[in-house]
């Protein structure tokens, strides 16, 4: 059983428009040519991917209000076991607008999410500890809602390690920096908005490799960083690899990062080495980027992309 934790889930609403007309001097009305609604948040996206690959998992986090109900229903409809904590307020709705021909630069409006009370946090920890007794891996991902301390992932990693459960952290900023002190098994810094972790710059491949090697020396199992739209770096104790997706025809980058980590985790659970698993994850990310679907979960479609994922040891 895999546990995924999404502290700040969302309903993701995506609109495709022919043209963004924000500068016309008139009140802009844009008609969507297509729209898509899904339960979202990093952990939930990973859960959905795993479930569609036939891997049992538990989705945990904080939800609230009618949007929270919608999230829970959609997650359950995927056959995922739910174990959410209900809080006051309303779960986020995040809106993304994709303009035809400019899909690589989506416009995103994200909400903050409901405030999590100390009592809700306490209840979460109780349920999380209970779930750990059945867990093989824990995935922690995404932003923290108001009320959740930046040490949250650090505490969850610590508790998982007490149960000898490996942890994957896909986060940014202080939440990731604190989690690093517990030395997770795999980290995937979210570099979309923050190109540094604990003051360490992750802007160039050289900086990423240098930071990754330092983290590995400090006891972290492996580091996976996207350093270019088509390049990921995998740093482990055994070496450093650059994975490149070739001839990508971008349609939608929104779910690519989640597909990368979910694909990697699914392949690991099914017995692949970390390098092979990352290659599968990158194929999943590429397939997602080439589709209007948020995260592609069709194994055949992913395997079709695999030959275009090239690996070079640095």
């Amino acid at each position: 059983m895999i546990i995924t934790v999404t502290p700040n889930p969302a309903i993701d609403k995506i609109y495709w428009v022919e043209r963004l007309c924000l500068d016309d001097g008139e009140l802009p009305v844009m008609r969507a040519t297509r729209s898509y609604l899904t339960a979202g948040g990093k952990g939930i996206n990973v859960s959905i991917f795993l479930a569609r690959m036939g891997i049992e998992n538990i989705a945990m986090g904080f939800i609230a209000g009618e949007t929270g109900r919608a999230v829970e229903r959609r997650v359950r409809d995927e056959g995922i076991t739910t174990n959410f904590i209900w809080v006051e307020g309303e779960t986020r709705t995040n809106v993304t607008i994709l303009e035809r021909g400019h899909e690589q630069r989506p416009i995103q409006i994200t909400e903050q999410g409901p405030t999590v009370s100390p009592e809700a946090l306490k209840r979460f920890i109780v349920q999380y500890k209970r779930a750990l007794s059945r867990a093989r891996y824990v995935f922690l991902g995404g932003s923290l809602p108001p009320g959740v301390p930046v040490q949250f992932y650090q505490e969850l990693t610590h508790l998982a390690h007490q149960h000898r459960v490996p942890v994957i952290v896909n986060a940014a900023g202080e939440a990731l920096a604190h989690a690093l002190t517990e030395r997770p098994w795999l980290i995937k810094p979210d570099t979309r908005q923050h190109r540094n972790v604990s003051g360490v710059s992750l802007r160039t491949p050289q900086e990423i490799v240098s930071a990754g090697k330092a983290w590995i020396a400090d006891g972290i199992g492996a580091v996976l960083v996207s350093h270019h739209i088509t390049h990921d770096l995998l740093i482990t104790r055994e070496g450093v690899w650059d994975l490149e997706a070739c001839d990508v025809r971008f349609k939608n980058l929104l779910g690519a990062e989640d597909a990368l980590i979910a694909g990697t985790l699914s392949a690991i659970v099914q017995g692949a080495s970390l390098l092979e698993a990352t290659r599968f994850g990158m194929a999943a990310a590429t397939a997602s980027a080439e589709s209007e679907e948020l995260v592609v979960t069709d194994r055949t479609a992913i395997e079709r992309v695999l030959p275009r994922i090239q690996i070079e040891q640095l």
Binding site: R76, G79, F84, V126, Q127, A131
Partner: peptide, 9 residues
């Protein structure tokens, strides 16, 4: 079944 683990202590 409904795969939900909501429970009390």
């Amino acid at each position: 079944m409904t795969k939900d683990l909501t429970a009390a202590e």
